[in-house]
Nucleic acid binder design. Structure first.
Lengths: 252, 252
DNA sequence: GGCTGTGAAATGGTTCACAGCG
DNA sequence: CGCTGTGAACCATTTCACAGCC
């Protein structure tokens, strides 16, 4: 899907240009690798073929190989990829080796879910601050972190060295939250609110709209059930079962 | 994604083939239109140009026109689109005119957030059932609906005529949740768990991985900050110059 | 032999630009 | 004249297929 909000995307020649779609999958590979490492800690060879990795991540093996080729040449022909090496290499590429501090604005159910989300740490993500406007929530502890007041975003973000912001407020507060984060120097924002949010050109904004995800399903569902019309004898002999949907994307 | 299998080309121009990316945006347009209708209920002309609509949805106007052209010809040249007509038409295309019943498995923070999500109804989505394994949660009421036990999915889904399932359980329970939903006859599933879920070929599975979204931001963030320290190579063409105006302007 | 790395082809999606209608 | 609808150009991504290395 794609709810894009124009992004500059400087075309300057940089070391290696990794396609947007590849970045999303690299994160999935990293996760699959971490899982594999745990499982095969006792036995196994310590390496995996592109086929195995692809299955574990839910993608096509050719896609995986091409994705990895953007990082460099880390596979061994005839054998596969060393799990440990590849984990480190992808982690490096994604910047997961160095922690990123995240500020979360809006500590409702969704915010709390995010604050308690496991597996951030292993990917270099650290929730550094929580904010809310509700006096009842300010001062409380969620996921081990004390909720601070919305008005202190600038101050706290500076103190906690936050570089990424997440907006999980109700819709009407989203723009204000974005503004506050931007003022605080945050240049990467993930928003869970529908609706347009305006940010300066140098700020990276991603959006995830839960209702849209469901509506896409509803669309397909409608199509499926509406198929009673013609007795076409092609019952979705679809080959693969795999399915990876990076969901909402921005960045054109 | 599979929606367009090789169709025998039926004579009538009934079901046009709508691209996946367009479907996602149609949902966004629908939302923008509903908002517009509310705002302009008192005054305004009752129609909007592709430019206005595009701005309200955060996309390019050419993209919007092309998207709408898949539905048919509903605009008026020299004028724009009638808001009410277009709303109805997009709603029809998306299947939002007829309600879809949704079952939600896993009523933790995330599940509760979804159950309380406003704006589902206006888009034809109705939460019909909530499930959890936790005895403490079963029997409780969330978002006006009583939480039922995981084991009764098949029974309750049939009773409530559920066609879409949402998985918001902890990771380890995800596959079991999917299996249960599939057994209950659900053929469209949205999962918020990372990791691979296997479903039969005729089941539509979408995934949203919160950690991946953040990791993508972290990647860009790493690039941004690395760019400042890397003042070599590029022949002084690197500054902060964003000549491209993003101009995500929201008008009228 | 098996598997990676990668050009090249195929597919899907976005943007341009303009003809044509209201 | 303004704005839609759309072919055509453009760009991104996926998939194929195979050469080359282990």
């Amino acid at each position: 899907m794609k709810i894009s909000q124009l992004e500059p995307d400087r075309g300057g020649a940089r070391p290696r240009d990794i396609p947007e779609a590849t970045v999303a999958r690299l994160a999935a590979y990293l996760r699959a690798l971490t899982l594999m490492a745990d499982l095969s800690a006792t036995a196994k060879s310590g390496s995996a073929s592109s086929e195995e990795l692809a299955a574990a991540a839910g993608v096509n093996s050719a896609t995986l190989r091409k994705d990895l080729s953007y990082l460099g040449t880390y596979g061994i022909r005839g054998v596969g990829y060393d799990i440990e090496l590849l984990t480190a290499e992808i982690g490096r590429a994604l910047g997961a080796h160095r922690p990123h501090r995240v500020a979360l604005v809006g500590v409702g159910n969704l915010g709390a879910a995010l604050a308690g989300y496991p597996g951030f740490l292993s990917r270099g993500l650290v929730i550094g601050a929580l904010f809310d406007v509700d006096p009842h929530r300010v001062g409380q502890t969620v996921g081990g972190i004390t909720v601070e007041h919305f008005d202190s975003i600038a101050h706290v973000c500076a103190r906690e060295d936050v570089s990424i912001g997440v907006i999980a407020t109700p819709e009407p507060a989203a723009q204000a939250a974005a503004d506050a984060l931007v003022s605080a120097g945050v240049r990467s924002i993930l928003a869970f609110t529908p609706g347009v949010i305006t940010v300066p050109a140098d700020v990276d904004l991603r959006k995830v709209d839960l209702a849209i995800e469901l509506q896409i399903l509803a669309f397909h569902e409608t199509r499926k059930t509406a198929e009673h019309s013609e007795s076409s004898l092609s019952p979705a002999a679809d080959g693969d079962t795999e399915n990876i949907s990076p969901a909402v994307a921005v960045s054109s």
